[in-house]
């Protein structure tokens, strides 16, 4: 069996892109102290909205724009519930995922069987979304580590009471971070429908949103780590598909477990390193998942 490394790497970049977008968005939300488990719901909503817009306009770019808007719009439900009504973030995120899956199953029916318009090829034969995803990594790193708004966002995520005491608008920062996370999750989902599968099918994100959540933990809340994690999963996915295509004597259903099992293994390894390792690694933002309620 011949596997050309360059073509595998190109496939890997494509397979990694949806997870890269979604995980970068979730990373920003989590650095602001918000745990949004609704990534899967926002991705599938983006996948449908993006596909519908791309199909109607014939422009993939407009599709991705619509997906970002749809993802952000859906995330505002989560923002309203967790930031104003102080609901439990775990439960609300789950609700967002269940709602998104239901909503898209309901409105997606007419789009089944249609084809997506062709993506515009970018430099080196890779499409622009792959490049945008990779470019977001240093940009977000720079934003979080080197800019004042990034510092405020991190302060809100580490200690919302102190940030509030210093006069920073905790709630506004978090709502913006949630919206940004929703927009990127939507674009990641749209990449699956517009650029990978080229059509819409119900439930097509198949757990990518949950894998993105695991990648953020794997990355220890660092954008570069997210890139490494997304490529790792892209690699596992491509390898698994290659083995399927090569007709290895393992049932297809078992091969297709690989990305999920790899997620568990990676999660265990990184958690063990945090628990037992001497260096420890970066911990989660201290206020992650905690509701903020100013008593004044």
């Amino acid at each position: 069996m011949m596997i050309d490394p360059l073509s595998v790497f190109i496939l890997l970049l494509g397979a990694a892109t949806p997870i890269l977008f979604a995980a970068l968005g979730e990373l920003v939300a989590e650095r602001a102290g918000v745990l949004n488990l609704g990534v899967e719901g926002m991705m599938i909503t983006g996948a449908l909205a993006g596909f519908a817009a791309a199909h109607a306009s014939g422009s993939p770019a407009l599709g991705f724009l619509a997906a970002a808007i749809a993802g952000a719009a859906l995330s505002m439900t989560f923002a309203a519930l967790t930031q104003f009504l102080l609901s439990n973030q775990v439960a609300t995120g789950l609700a967002l995922t269940l709602f998104g899956l239901g909503l898209t199953a309901m409105f997606g029916k007419p789009y089944e069987g249609m084809k997506a318009p062709a993506m515009m090829p970018g430099p080196l034969g890779l499409n622009w979304m792959i490049w945008l995803g990779i470019a977001l990594v240093p940009l977000l790193w720079w934003f979080l580590a080197r800019t004042r708004p990034g510092l405020i966002l991190r302060a809100v995520g580490e200690n919302h009471d102190a940030a509030h005491g210093l006069g920073y608008p905790v709630r506004r920062v978090r709502i913006l971070a949630i919206g940004f996370g929703g927009a990127l999750a939507g674009m990641g989902g749209a990449y699956i429908s517009i650029a990978t599968v080229l059509q819409w099918t119900e439930g097509m994100t198949a757990g990518a949103g949950w894998i993105a959540l695991a990648i953020v933990v794997f990355a220890q809340w660092n954008p570069w780590g997210v890139l490494a994690g997304a490529w790792l999963f892209g690699g596992v996915t491509v390898l698994q598909l290659r083995l399927q295509a090569a007709g290895v004597a393992v049932p297809v259903q078992l091969l297709s477990m690989a990305p999920y099992l790899a997620t568990i293994i990676v999660l265990v390894l990184i958690s063990a390193r945090q628990k037992f390792g001497r260096s420890g690694g970066a911990a989660a933002p201290a206020s992650l998942g905690r509701p903020f309620h100013a008593l004044k």
Partner: peptide, 25 residues
């Protein structure tokens, strides 16, 4: 996995749903 390594039971239990679906198939 949570008790020994501190892995999130949310993510692990959810990943195992996808694994179980494939075992059923």
């Amino acid at each position: 996995l949570r008790n020994w390594f501190g892995a999130s039971e949310i993510l692990v239990s959810l990943m195992l749903v996808y694994v179980a679906q494939r075992i059923a198939a």
